[in-house]
Amino acid sequence: MLLEIKDLHVSIDGKEIVKGLNLQVNAGETHAIMGPNGTGKSTLALAIAGREGYEVTSGKIIYKGQDIVGMAPEERARAGIFLGFQYPVEIPGVSITNFMRTALNEIREYRKLPVLSASEFLGRMEEKKKLLEIQNKLTNRSVNEGFSGGEKKRNEIFQMAMLEPTLSVLDETDSGLDIDSLKVVAKGVNTLKTKENAFVVITHYQRLLEYIVPDIVHVLYDGRIVRSGGKELAIELENKGYDWIKKELSRA
């Protein structure tokens, strides 16, 4: 198993947000996580990536057989975990090129791979830019600075393509994307998909799942996964909303 989350509890500022969550992801799988606003989806994603202040009060996040709770975010990234942010940060003055070069070099150094030469690196940039139909002028700019909502999301997937992670958690990468961009992003994800890696896609819209077809769909509600099923579950949610789940839960 690539990722196994066991009875995870996460608090922010002493307030419990994730309340006993279980999730298992195998290599080669794509999972979708849906759920109403404010139920803890991003909190889960950030806890997996190791955001400071997201305190794991109990439970385990086992990745490749090792509990990563307490590991620095960069160590997780080097081990192959990637988070596509719901709200990517603007970093004036740091160009995407330098950012990616530094990241890739550090990851490669950690994995004892030779550092890419400037031309190898730029070759890789070109290849991934083509894949995601990213214009040159975008990568010469500062990270996310002044990017449109859609450009920011596309840039997240571009970074994922550059770093080739094993586990990618994509937090609402589809929101803010027009239909063409959505297709490009989906194509990117599908091209990068292998038997060895896995994707956890957080979304509100079933539309994305027509392009990135999940093996399993989960519903996250009030800090827990309360239902899991096949891709039909997403269609059902799209049609009926979340009320029926809430009702069932309150009855139980």
Partner: peptide
Amino acid sequence: EAMFYLRSRGICA
């Protein structure tokens, strides 16, 4: 936020 963003890509603190 920016620190975390960079670190989440594998860049040390």
